[in-house]
Amino acid sequence: MNIRYWLHLYFVLIRSSIRSGMQYKMNFLLGMLLAAGIQIAEFLMIAIVLNKFGAVKGWSLYEVGYLFAVMTLSKALYRSFANDVHHLENYLTSGDLDQLLTRPVPVLLALMSQNFRMMPGELLQGGFILTWALHGMMQAGQITWIAVPFTFLVIFTGAVILFAIGLTTATAGFWLTRINELQTLTEDASQTAVRYPLVLYPVWLRSILLVVIPVGFVNYVPSLFILRGELGAWVLLGIVLVAAVCLFASMKLWTFGMSRYQSTGS
């Protein structure tokens, strides 16, 4: 299929989704302000905790800030461009998925373009902490400028991994219908957990966050190399590979799940 055409269509759909959202200006603005407020509050929480304890298990304040910022930015990227993948449950319970299926468009593309929202709060907060952390570490001579392009790559691959996890969780909805609790586990809780270095956790939990729900590859594993020079440059290639495998597997699973779709009563 023609990638350029799908991309074009995706942006047409995103544009109309933004215009739909703008119909309710008050809601739009309030949503943006609240999101920014929550983000700032979360950041303050972490800043206070870290200021008090200085470093956690050998990870400096800057390094933890870096982990936090990369996760925030990856997540913002994923949720901006694939918002309703996270909300598939609504489509399953209301039967709205039927509508998407009557269009000559891949269901996933249609789903991704619904209810697009930019996340300026998250982007600002993440961008700010990232700049602060990178700057601090450069001043200390811990990293060089090469870390900047690496970080962009990692944010992107991280978004892909988070998307794959989100899509796999959503796919479970074809069997379970209700998936919001599962999402709390695979998306919210695990993403929050890896805002801190994985060394903090017992081995079993660490393994889960790397193998079962591979969120550890979003920020922790790449930062071992980018910030601390551990492992080796092959890590970056490895991350790209992990992202690609996750994406491929989740798409396969999604296609299979779609064939199990039962719709709702008339």
Binding site: V12, S16, R19, Q23, Y24, G95, D96
Partner: peptide
Amino acid sequence: FGQRSQLWWDLPVKDSYEILAHMYK
């Protein structure tokens, strides 16, 4: 489907046709 609309709920009617024209080439 008589029970539910296929159109973009919050947009003017004409916009829905524009989007559909893109979808169906």
